[in-house]
């Protein structure tokens, strides 16, 4: 924890000089591309200003047939966005539910065990993301490893590939380390005396968790949630491979428009997604700060 009263040190000339390359990199590869996204989002094919792309996102409709075969009119992109949000939230919640206790257990383990467990969690991240997703395809397919295993045990086969569950499994698997690592790093730094103090002052185990461990680990939870929610809301590859393309997500929409050379509309979707995510993050951060100040 930083002391809020610490005097802010002035950066020296040499520090600013060293910062130069990073600033240049950030401007070139972050700021400029973002400006391009915004520029494309608000222009038409001949680069005249228009809000048509933005409006199209909110108003475009198409007809879908549901399970009963009845056709109905829906707002295409709002529906896709809603679906992306739903799957991303489910994945994030699952990651949190599994990651939080895991991070706690790891942080309380002996130092050697901690190192081993963290390494084990990180090892899959050394492999290419696409390869990991392909691996899940071979596991989840109707004739895949999981089903061979089940039938070997004379159990009923399951149909997972091409369902929302498969997409969620893929997301959880891919992004789980991003949840556990920030929570773990906060937990590992936590002062154990504080937990003793809470017990001394009348908290049972759950009370210590609710009133001390949880609020103190909140910064880790927020970065974990952010780092899982954002990539899973904009993913397109996982849904294509594990969802058999049946679950068109917002990432797929952006990719689709891009591939179809509809750069301006693709930029508009990306732009809207970004604004929504930034707003959500700001909201979350404010809530956390408020809680921290209470």
């Amino acid at each position: 924890m930083k002391n809020p009263n610490a005097v802010r040190r002035r950066s020296t000339r040499i520090e600013r000089f060293c910062l130069g390359p990073y600033s240049a990199w950030a401007v070139l590869f972050i700021v400029v591309p973002l400006l391009f996204v915004a520029y494309y989002a608000f222009t038409d094919n001949s680069f005249h200003f228009t809000t048509a792309n933005i409006t199209r996102f909110f108003t475009a409709t198409s007809s879908v047939t549901d399970e009963t075969g009845a056709a109905r009119e829906v707002h295409t992109y709002l529906l896709i966005f809603g679906r992306s949000l739903k799957l991303a939230v489910i994945s994030t919640v699952l990651c949190l539910l599994m990651g939080y206790p895991a991070a706690y257990i790891i942080a309380r383990a002996p130092a050697r065990t901690q190192k081993i467990m963290i390494t084990l969690i990180m090892i899959p991240m050394w492999m290419n993301f696409l390869i990991r997703t392909y691996a899940w395809m071979t596991i989840l397919q109707d004739t895949g490893i999981l089903n061979s295993f089940l039938s070997a045990l004379h159990l009923r086969r399951v149909h997972i590939i091409g369902t929302e569950s498969a997409v969620v499994i893929g997301m959880v698997y891919d992004y789980f380390p991003y949840m556990i690592l920030p929570i773990y790093s906060v937990m590992a730094k936590m002062d154990l005396k504080l937990l003793e103090a809470a017990r001394d002052l009348g908290c049972n185990g759950f009370g210590v968790l609710r009133r001390v461990i949880w609020p103190l680990s909140l910064p880790g939870v927020i970065s974990g949630v952010t780092m899982v929610l954002i990539p899973s809301i904009s993913t397109f590859y996982i849904s294509q491979k594990l969802g058999n393309g049946k679950f068109y997500l917002i990432g797929d929409a952006i990719e689709g428009q891009y591939v179809a050379n509809n750069l301006h509309f693709a930029a508009a979707i990306a732009f809207i997604l970004m604004v929504i995510l930034l707003a959500a993050m700001a909201f979350m951060q404010r809530g956390a700060n408020k809680k921290a100040m209470a």
Binding site: E196, A197, D200, L201, G202
Partner: peptide
């Protein structure tokens, strides 16, 4: 257990809740 004992502790480095 500690939380059911009618004793309280002042810790060496105080252990105040920073949040």
């Amino acid at each position: 257990p500690p939380h059911k004992r009618n004793v309280n502790t002042v810790f060496q480095r105080y252990a105040l809740f920073p949040h």
